[in-house]
Design a protein around this nucleic acid. Structure first.
Lengths: 210, 210
DNA sequence: TAAAAAATACCCTAATGGAGGTACTGATTC
DNA sequence: GAATCAGTACCTCCATTAGGGTATTTTTTA
């Protein structure tokens, strides 16, 4: 028997899920919470196999709640629920320990499939979400084309800065004067239009320069 | 008519692709190169719709070749080809401007589907690869559990450091003494076992602490 | 409620980084 | 052959950071 908790402030949704699962005798809905607070309270004395978690809750962000649940409970499989379909949310959710993602306009079969998949330690993303996550890579690739061109030396030094070496350390490694490294660094800061090495590293990684 | 270039040093593969596409009258193989050098030469005077690119080439890395091709040619759709199925390769490939990824043990239908999908500006990943890419998120989530626990304040300050604020700036924002921020920073450096703020930011992003 | 953890604040020193220059050399490109 | 770019090196000034501490007050949690 699979136990399931649903966390969603719209009765329509929790009722809908209940209706969808009515005919499935091996799944039992053990709880329905309307707020994050209620859910956390509930989970103190329960350990459901599946948690369906709405991302937009009245009290706190569903993403945060996901983190909170994962702190205490590593076993339950968490499936995110939203009406919008945004790539950013999807990746965030997964990185916070969720096991899957469903759109609220899902079909009954998709819900049941999702439950079975996550119980088998797989990640389940609703079909539409799946396409989104892939498109994201495309955007990164596009961004590549608008990034200032760096010279060979600059790339090399950027790489070493990324690895955490200080200016003087890099100078030693490349048999150059520390002044030279600082010059390159300054040129990099200008080219990438940032004010610190730290921000430059961030910019560089986000734009896949490294 | 769709023009296709294949870059692979194994005749078996290029012949195989040719055989698979023999019956497809709207696809024409316009070239078959065995090395990166040969491919770059070929592309100087040709502009195929589809490029099937082997990741393991004799002269240079297929990933690098992908970048090189993209520098000169933004239009052609590039589909990576490998025999191994590793998540790292997949994401790298996509971030270097490829449009898809196929395993060499693909079926004929999958190849044709992939070609059609990428021409429609979609990303195509072979089914097995798809599973891998998703599992990756799982690994990240797992890693979450081995990362030192940070306090609320520490997370807040880490976030602000990530956003590029300096110690004193953060102090001003939070109405705290700069000393306090430095203390928190030092505690963070210790907890995360790194020697500079920059490395800490890198560590934090890699471990999805932010 | 007592103990532990988190948050606050202070101090010192040496090293590093960022902002602002200038200047020479060797390739590459026009 | 002139001009541009890349790479090298030097300089000053001051803010920030890293490493080493100590100490008090809240807040959490056991």
């Amino acid at each position: 028997m699979i136990s399931l908790l649903i966390i969603d402030d719209h009765p329509l949704v929790s009722d809908g899920v209940a209706a969808m699962l009515k005919g499935v005798e091996y799944i039992q809905i053990v709880g329905a919470c309307k707020t994050a607070a209620e859910a956390l309270q509930f989970l103190k004395s329960a350990d459901p196999d599946i948690i369906l978690l709405d991302i937009s809750l009245p009290d706190i962000d569903g993403l945060e709640l996901c983190t909170l649940i994962r702190k205490k409970n590593k076993r339950s499989k968490i499936i995110g629920l939203t009406s919008t379909n945004e790539a950013g949310i999807i990746t965030q959710l997964l990185s916070k320990g969720a096991n899957g993602y469903l759109l609220k306009n899902m079909e009954r079969d998709e819900l049941i499939l999702a439950i079975n998949e996550v119980l088998n330690n797989k990640i389940f993303l609703s079909k539409a979400a799946n396409q989104k996550i892939l498109e994201q890579y495309n955007n990164v690739a596009d961004a590549l084309n608008s990034v200032p061109a760096l010279t060979r030396r600059e790339k090399e030094i950027l790489q070493l800065l990324y690895e955490g070496f200080t200016g003087p350390q890099i100078a030693e490694q490349l048999f150059l004067s520390p002044y030279t490294i600082e010059t390159h660094r300054k040129n990099l800061l200008q080219k990438l239009n940032v004010s610190s090495t730290q921000l430059m590293i961030r910019y560089a990684t986000e734009n896949k320069l490294l």
